[in-house]
């Protein structure tokens, strides 16, 4: 572990010393031994504060959206999840590949629930790879949880999601953590959309949940950041995964962020689309 951490520090230090990047986004220590925090290192000396351990759980890619027009390249430590997020952001025209320097760090598994469903530990896109790729752990059944909800009767299902959204506090942490949420202004922040109330009520919370699922569902890279960020511990990735499962059943194998070229399922027009519902 410390060997890898050392490689990361050296790599960041060199990039900063050579002026290749303006800053590097990585993980740093906190005063808790079981937590790390995202850090933004902008001097060679600062590289020594980078850490790499099982608690480096945050996916860092989201921060790229805070600096979409950088003067210099941004250095980003990229595991499978960061790289898939980057692919998606490039496809969504939110970041430019040439303004990034991706330091590939194959992931050895982290101590977060969100990693349980990880299907890709190794970065799919990078400028340098700091160590050998890791073997992907056989993930649990991708849609196991979705299947569990599908097995419920409609009434049970309504009670289940109703219960989930009774607890939602509408803090929008899920949106803020999601690498795919990239609107300049989120509809929930708009003064008057006409269909989304600001009240904290089951129906308005549910409208938010459903809208969020539809806005990101066909582009979800299944990183689980929404659930990690949720202070109420709500199983909300189940909704985007339900969308993904439907898409898989409708049009075959579909997974987002594996490359930067694929259109999102709902973002393309094709005369040969199946329109069985017509």
């Amino acid at each position: 572990m410390s060997d890898r951490q050392e490689k990361m520090r050296q790599s960041a230090e060199k990039l900063l010393r050579d002026g290749e990047v303006g800053y590097v986004i990585g993980w740093g220590a906190t005063r808790f031994c079981d937590r790390t925090t995202p850090v933004f290192i902008d001097s060679p000396e600062g590289a020594a504060s980078l850490v790499w351990n099982e608690h480096a759980v945050n996916s860092l890619a989201k921060y790229l959206l805070d600096d979409k027009y950088p003067d210099k390249k941004i250095g980003l430590f990229a595991r499978g999840c960061e790289s898939r997020a980057v692919n998606r952001m490039i496809k969504d025209n939110q970041v430019k590949r040439e303004s990034l320097y991706l330091i590939g760090v194959p992931c050895d598994g982290k101590s977060s629930d969100r990693c349980r469903l990880c299907r890709e530990r190794n970065p799919l896109v990078y400028d340098v790879l700091l160590w050998e790729p890791e073997a992907n752990a056989a993930p649990a059944d991708r849609f196991e949880r979705v299947r569990g909800v599908e097995a419920m009767s409609p009434d049970e299902r309504y009670r289940y999601w109703g219960g989930v959204y009774d607890r939602c506090i509408r803090c929008y942490a899920c949106r803020n953590a999601c690498p795919v949420c990239s609107c300049r202004e989120c509809y929930v922040d708009m003064g008057r959309t006409g269909f989304q109330g600001k009240q904290h009520s089951r129906s308005d919370n549910q409208i938010f949940g459903v809208t969020r699922a539809f806005h990101v569902g066909d582009r979800c890279i299944e990183c689980g950041e929404c659930e990690r960020a949720c202070p109420m511990g709500l199983p909300i990735m189940g909704q985007t995964q339900k969308m993904l499962k439907e898409i898989n059943e409708l049009s075959g194998e579909y997974e987002c962020g594996l490359d930067a070229d694929s259109d999102s399922f709902l973002g393309r027009f094709d005369l040969d689309d199946k329109d069985e519902f017509m």
Partner: peptide
């Protein structure tokens, strides 16, 4: 935001 979802659709 220039995401281009409209372009493809």
């Amino acid at each position: 935001s220039g995401c281009g979802a409209c372009v493809g659709i």
